[in-house]
Design a protein around this nucleic acid. Structure first.
Lengths: 149, 149
DNA sequence: TGTAGATAGTGCGAAATCGAACTATAAAGA
DNA sequence: TCTTTATAGTTCGATTTCGCACTATCTACA
């Protein structure tokens, strides 16, 4: 790689970081107090892809350490948004189940945050997102493989 | 906004979040132990845009709360990578100065991380980044304005 | 000049993040 | 079977993040 190009890559990931920071803060401002993006993300993940996933599966989906997931799940369970049951297929493991409250909560969070996204969507229509989303996903996949290797 | 499109926006920001997570972990793996991306970012910012910025200016550049910056700067100062001096133009304020050690450290971090970026650059050449960078920057600008308003 | 409101930075406490070490269970191979 | 190795999850401690409240200083304006 040409040395002159290194700053471009720094800039790119810096931009990704700031964008993440801004969207997180903006989104959390529309959630009930004390709920973080991390909390919502787990609820949303379970609602979209289905109950019964293990903590490790969820952690990997977000590329987070399992200790972080342990903490997040314990908070969600304390608030009765999920329940953890033994995994019938594996005695070491557990499965995470959305409670009715958790599902309601997730649905409501989406409703509450819709104005935020609608505002954003006005300036950045779906076509624009769809144009860059595949590239971002490809980068994610690449970095994911690199990490293991 | 069409309700059907909300998931697209969630997906987009989720992807940004995971990309940020992966790149941060990958990059930090190439830094000396105990140095985080947050630390490096400040050093890099000062080296690129010049010494003598105030803590608040730096915090705003990364969209971080000023209390977070206070903490980061105190760590950097403890490690003799920066020094803080009174701001001659404003008695409430300070200016942050890179030490020689801090500058060396930043330069070395760039060298150490070059293989990481080179590997990435092989798959994602500069043209690809340049194609999406303006959009990301535009989004950053938009969300930044929204946050204030 | 004097005073009210705004701004820069810090101290503090709570929560989130995460690596290392640990326990319990599963899987693989002798 | 039995023993070794790998895996799922937790506990613990250190660090980071960040909102709130506070002090010191600046700015605006009467």
């Amino acid at each position: 790689m040409d040395k002159e190009q290194t700053p471009l890559y720094f800039q790119f990931f810096t931009e990704v970081g700031i964008l993440n920071q801004l969207s997180r803060v903006g989104f959390e401002a529309h959630l009930p107090m004390g709920i973080t993006l991390a909390h919502f993300s787990v609820l949303n993940h379970l609602a979209r892809l289905g109950d019964g996933q293990t903590p490790l599966q969820i952690a990997k989906a977000f590329q987070l350490p399992k200790t972080t997931m342990t903490h997040t799940l314990s908070v969600l369970e304390k608030r009765d948004l999920i329940v953890m049951r033994p995994n019938p297929d594996d005695g070491r493991s557990k499965v995470v189940i959305l409670t009715d409250l958790g599902r309601e909560f997730r649905d409501e969070a989406i409703v509450l945050s819709t104005p935020y996204f609608a505002n954003f969507a006005e300036r950045f229509p779906p076509e624009k997102l769809e144009k860059v989303l595949p590239l971002l996903a490809e980068m994610r996949g690449f970095l994911d493989k690199e990490r293991d290797g």
